[in-house]
Simulated assay, not measured.
Amino acid sequence: MKQRHITQVIVLTILSCLALFYVEQILELSYIMKTLAKILLFLIVPIVFIKVVLKERLFESLRLNQVDVKGLQYGVGLGLLSVIVILAAYVLLQDQINGETIILDLQNRLNITLETYIFVALYITFGNSLLEEFYFRGFIFLKFYQSGYHVLGYIFSSALFAIYHVAIFATWFNFELILLALAGLFVVGLIFNWLNTKSNNFLNSWILHICADIAVVSIGFYLFWSM
């Protein structure tokens, strides 16, 4: 990408994340409506940008037309490790986490119940993870990285990935845990980015993301059942 395209992507993605924060925390919309807003901002808008502004074919632009299966072993290995780390972290920090607050937020703000949680969990694990990896790693990081903006790609995509999550857990944790979560997500973003340099597409980080989400939604099931 040319330098002006890099600037356009930075402005576009910051505005999109701000819009999503407004949708998540301010507007009283159903979970389905919030999901549709995310699909618009994280999928449709980037695709239009790739095809109209960059004038590139989608699969070729994302390097999905030539997938090296061998290169995906990194995602599988680190994905399994992430499940262990997340579950261990929850066990160690569960006294600092108010599970009731999290569940009440899911029920009141998003109208999620134990009965509907299974469908939400499946979407989060496979659909939402795909949206985020396409957006933060495919559309932002790899486009920057492949254009020679390595450091900017690593820092900007990881920072935006971390900050964007505040819209989700802003009411869940105390200030110290929010800072810890932001730092952790920034490091995770860096790891995800590095992983994708091994496959030259976002599939490695998507595999890792799926594994991490399996651990997270499993904790959610536990919190729902324990209430």
Rank of each mutant, 00 (worst) to 15 (best):
S199K: 05
I103D: 03
W194V: 06
H165I: 07
G99V: 06
N128F: 01
G184N: 13
H165L: 05
F21T: 08
L43W: 10
C211I: 02
F136T: 09
L29F: 02
V187L: 15
H150G: 05
D213K: 09
N200W: 05
L160Y: 04
Y31Q: 14
S16H: 02
W225Y: 08
G77A: 08
F144T: 13
I214G: 01
L223P: 00
E28W: 13
G75Q: 07
L18C: 13
I178N: 05
N65M: 05
P46V: 00
H5D: 12
D105E: 12
T101F: 13
W225S: 06
I6L: 00
A167G: 14
W172L: 04
S205M: 07
D95H: 09
I140C: 08
I163S: 01
L160R: 04
V11K: 09
L64M: 14
L185C: 07
C211D: 05
Q107C: 04
A19C: 10
F42W: 09
I39W: 00
I219P: 01
N65P: 06
Y90D: 06
T113A: 10
K70C: 07
S30Y: 02
Q94C: 10
H150W: 10
A159G: 04
L131G: 05
G148P: 10
F136Y: 12
I178E: 05
W172S: 00
E132W: 02
G189R: 01
L92P: 01
L62Q: 14
F156E: 05
Y135L: 04
L179Q: 07
L40N: 03
K70A: 14
I168Y: 09
V67G: 06
I103G: 03
I44L: 06
E100Y: 15
L15W: 00
R57E: 15
Y222E: 04
I26R: 12
L78I: 14
F141Q: 12
F156Y: 15
D213Y: 11
I210D: 08
L20M: 15
K51A: 09
L114M: 13
Y164W: 09
L27I: 13
N196W: 05
L130R: 00
H150K: 15
F202L: 05
A215Q: 04
Q3R: 11
L87R: 04
L93N: 13
N200L: 11
S157A: 14
K38Q: 07
T171M: 03
G71A: 12
K38M: 11
C17S: 15
L185Y: 07
S30E: 04
L152Y: 09
E115Q: 13
Y90W: 06
L81H: 01
L27G: 09
T197I: 01
V45G: 01
L182D: 00
L87K: 05
K70Y: 11
G127T: 07
L78Y: 13
Q3W: 09
N174Q: 10
I112H: 00
Y154R: 12
L177S: 01
N128W: 02
N204S: 10
I86W: 02
I124C: 03
V166A: 06
M1D: 00
I84V: 15
D95E: 12
L15Y: 03
S218Q: 02
L64E: 12
Y74L: 13
F161N: 08
L177F: 03
V76Y: 06
K34S: 14
Q96I: 02
N204V: 06
R109K: 14
K70T: 12
